[in-house]
Computed example of a mutant assay.
Amino acid sequence: MEIYLIRHTTPQIDKGTCYGQADLDVTDSFDQEAACIKPYLSPLIEKVISSPLQRCSKLAQYLFPSHTIQYDDRIKEIHCGEWELQPWDVIDKQQLDPWMADFINVQIPGGESYVQLYQRVASFFEEVVQKYSSLAIVAHGGVIRSLLAYINEVKLRDSFGQFSFSYGCVIKVHGTNEQFRHTILHNPDRPKEQHRPASY
């Protein structure tokens, strides 16, 4: 079995902004970033599944123009609820402190916790590996990190240090239902991202 995990290209948003399921567009560098991904993909990919958010759907359509792309809400990014599209540094510290202390289990107000994201991603993965032997998944950083934590049996809190990848990365998961391994095929050098307040 071969599964290609593809993270969307750079989204059109100011650095330091909290975002998850906001339907962000891509930057002007999209065509260049997407073209760099193509050489790392097998021509024998059977099925393509993408997050419906446009930063993923546009990439899926670009990379796989001859495929019928399936969209699945379970591989959307984490739901950031009331914090969506707010600058990290203006979010109420009384709300942030409990989340920063335990962002794995504490739910973002009006949104999700990382455990909830992980659970829906694991459910999705268990379903698709029963159906397809060659698959491409176009998704988000949180989704890909959750999936890698799941197949490698890594604790979610440890996964942030263990799995590091940038916009436009390609990771190949291969093996059987009993044991999967992963290989990073493409991890472009991009500016450092900011997904938490600068003060923490």
Rank of each mutant, 00 (worst) to 15 (best):
E2A: 01
I6R: 06
R7Q: 13
H8T: 06
Q12G: 00
Q12Y: 11
I13N: 09
D14E: 15
K15I: 14
G16C: 07
G16I: 03
T17P: 03
Y19N: 06
Y19L: 02
G20M: 10
L24R: 07
L24H: 07
D25M: 01
D28V: 07
D28R: 09
D31F: 09
E33M: 11
E33A: 07
A34L: 04
A34F: 06
A34R: 03
A35T: 10
C36E: 14
I37F: 08
K38Y: 11
K38Q: 14
P43H: 05
P43N: 00
I45W: 03
K47G: 06
P52M: 09
L53K: 12
K58E: 13
K58A: 08
L59S: 02
A60H: 10
Q61E: 14
Y62V: 05
L63I: 12
P65Y: 10
H67T: 05
H67P: 03
T68N: 14
Y71T: 09
Y71K: 10
D72S: 04
D72G: 04
R74G: 04
I75N: 11
I75G: 08
I75Q: 08
K76H: 03
E82H: 10
E84G: 10
E84Q: 10
E84S: 07
Q86W: 00
P87N: 10
P87V: 02
W88T: 08
W88C: 04
W88E: 06
D89M: 02
V90S: 13
I91Q: 11
D92F: 01
D92S: 12
Q94G: 00
L96A: 13
D97H: 02
D102V: 06
D102E: 06
F103K: 09
I104R: 06
I104A: 06
V106P: 02
Q107W: 00
Q107V: 15
P109G: 05
S113W: 01
Q116K: 11
Q119G: 00
Q119M: 04
R120I: 09
R120A: 04
A122H: 05
E126W: 00
V128F: 00
V129Y: 03
V129P: 02
Q130A: 08
Q130Y: 04
Y132T: 02
Y132R: 06
S134I: 00
S134Y: 07
A136I: 07
A139H: 04
G141L: 01
I144H: 00
R145C: 00
L147P: 07
L147E: 08
L147R: 02
Y150A: 02
I151Q: 05
K155M: 02
L156F: 05
L156D: 07
L156T: 04
R157L: 07
D158C: 04
S159C: 06
S159N: 03
Q162N: 10
Q162M: 13
Q162A: 11
F163Y: 14
S164H: 10
S164I: 13
S166H: 14
Y167I: 02
Y167N: 15
Y167L: 06
Y167H: 14
G168I: 09
C169S: 15
V170Y: 03
V170D: 02
I171M: 05
H174N: 11
E178R: 13
F180N: 00
F180E: 01
T183H: 15
I184S: 11
I184Y: 11
N187R: 10
N187W: 05
P188M: 13
P188V: 09
D189T: 14
D189E: 14
P191F: 14
P191D: 12
K192P: 00
H195F: 14
R196C: 13
A198K: 13
A198V: 07
Y200W: 15
